[in-house]
Design a protein around this nucleic acid. Structure first.
Lengths: 180, 180
DNA sequence: TTTGGCATGTAATCCGTTACATGATTAG
DNA sequence: CTAATCATGTAACGGATTACATGCCAAA
């Protein structure tokens, strides 16, 4: 018995911050905010929107102000309630699958230089990610919008910074510790 | 077009380190070594073993030395070759889904105290994990076995340590930064 | 003798991505 | 005009967990 359906709650969460969004908007929003720790595909979003509307957690209406044919959704009271309930449940601890670490673990069976090559690549990637997140942090922190969600956005950005830094340091350290 | 089939390679990798293992053994091995960044269920392992044997990458034989009815597998030359090839491919960057961060991000819509509660829990969890990994690191480092895979085991353990430390520090810092 | 661990497998189900299918609008 | 982007959806597929189903062996 699992029951998570996190896609539904990701949608409810975004609609709690901003209403009158289309499926397309929702995707954009997620990509531009939480992409580094969460993502949804259209294949998930559209069926989910239909389901949530059927359940009365969101309401959809055709957007007349737009020239395009788009349907925008907003949270209902019940939707907000359900979201709050889900947010209160302790999050499931993820069972991550890290292909890089698996390849490092089996390093002894790899061709010479493979592991170093992978480590150099991730080091570069995480250093770039770190720089980018630090820039975003400065921007967000400087934005004068004192919305209630600001502190939470900042917290997740800092999580990304901590993780990118830890991964970079590990990669650097490991490159030094490996022979050849 | 994706093509990963990582379960297969996880099995090949373990068999490269130790031969004559049953499906049950493989599960045990994975749980006791790479569990914090990789796991496989029986529902994956047994079909995968059958497939790998059909492809000639491993060979299985009924274990006569054991009183139990078990079939043990070993890597073939071709299996070792395939593994080496896979290990050389740059690992796919994971698209992680972190439910905790999602709940933090939507914190403004949560009941009062929810986020703090979650953060306290993960802080405790990661601090315990950190202590455990540090212990394991000392044990493994002290083990006189100078096997070629030792350095790679240590590297993955240190990855766990870096990550657990980063997550703990982030949680502590975030608890301080949140109001109330 | 009965419980826990060893041991193997299949079936049901879920979750998620990718590909497919279609079409309108807008900017260059 | 034409390419990019907006926009919505379904179908096919694959990967993974969980539940189901079965049964033996060893230790308490």
């Amino acid at each position: 018995m699992k029951r998570t359906a996190t896609t539904d709650f990701a949608i409810l969460g975004v609609l709690a911050q901003e209403s009158r969004l289309s499926g397309y908007d929702l995707r954009q929003y997620l990509e531009q905010s939480v992409a580094f720790f969460w993502s949804e595909s259209f294949g998930q979003i559209y069926p989910s929107l239909a389901r949530l509307e059927r359940q009365g957690l969101i309401t959809g209406k055709v957007d007349r102000e737009s020239a395009r044919q788009r349907k925008v959704y907003s949270l209902t009271g019940r939707g907000r309630q359900q979201l709050a309930h889900w947010l209160d449940q302790t999050p499931l601890s993820e069972r991550p699958r890290n292909e890089l670490l698996l390849k490092v673990f089996f390093g002894a069976a790899a061709p010479a230089g493979s592991v170093r090559k992978h480590l150099k690549e991730v080091l570069a990637r995480h250093e770039a990610e770190l720089a980018q997140l630090q820039m975003i942090e400065r921007e967000v922190a400087a934005s004068d919008q004192n919305s209630s969600s600001l502190v939470y956005s900042l917290a997740t950005i800092r999580a990304g910074i901590h993780l990118a830094r830890a991964r970079s340091e590990w990669a650097r350290e490991t490159l030094n510790s490996l022979p050849e």
